[in-house]
Design a protein around this nucleic acid. Structure first.
Lengths: 115, 115
DNA sequence: TTAAGATTGTTCAGTCATTGAACGTAGATT
DNA sequence: AATCTACGTTCAATGACTGAACAATCTTAA
């Protein structure tokens, strides 16, 4: 499945490194080759990425995965959405940690009670 | 699969609310009934939870899911491990947000360039 | 030039976690 | 007694994911 998470991360990799193989992309995102292939195709299908081949350049991969103007736009939009999302996650996490601290503290108290 | 995440969350729910149905548990953890059933059985299998039935108590569910002493111990241990894990996540998230901020800022700069 | 080797994108059968409808059972309600 | 409701259990179906295998292309070596 192509989540926002991967959409963003793939666009980011391709933006600064268009000559990357699907295997290399898979490695960087820590996903399988099959999934990298699937996601990439989806991005191409959506018109966010264009797969241009470059036979001129030797010693290189088959395709250049270039972001289309739409892709650049989408990536900027995703960055913003992601920032907001991560900030929210940060807030939640901060609260979770506080609760865990209290809980861990209570646990130590209980151990003392039993001694 | 019964991950630490769910092991912890289930033990936490049961600790303060032993008379909870599997359906209710599933709702609280936002998982399916089947998974709740599977995880619960695993915890019972491991001896962390004991399913005691209480026919005395009317208007109640079939089982009482009580934490065993081992379960209480495990839950305390999980709390601590979780706290450390969440703190680590918090650090990572803080850094991610900083990077996203920079990236979002650059994007706005680029938009200004094109005007 | 040719043959072998390396690297690429593509495919897809297999794996595995997860779902939720369906079932049998046992109290509660009428 | 009959109906209803809520429970735990099951399991066929779904869907995401993997990575070995393949065909095509480029590189290198002889």
């Amino acid at each position: 499945m192509l989540t926002d998470e991967y959409r963003y991360r793939i666009l980011k990799v391709l933006e600064q490194d268009p000559d990357v193989s699907q295997r290399e992309l898979a490695k960087r995102l820590d996903i399988s080759l099959g999934k990298a292939n699937f996601c990439l195709k989806a991005l191409i299908e959506k018109g966010l990425v264009k797969a241009g081949n470059f036979k001129k350049n030797p010693n290189k991969a088959r395709y250049l995965y270039l972001l289309t103007p739409k892709g650049i736009e989408e990536k900027a939009s995703l960055t913003h959405r992601f920032l907001l999302k991560k900030i929210k996650e940060h807030e939640v996490l901060t609260e979770e940690i506080e609760l865990l601290r209290q809980e861990a503290f209570i646990n130590t108290q209980e151990i003392n009670d039993h001694e």
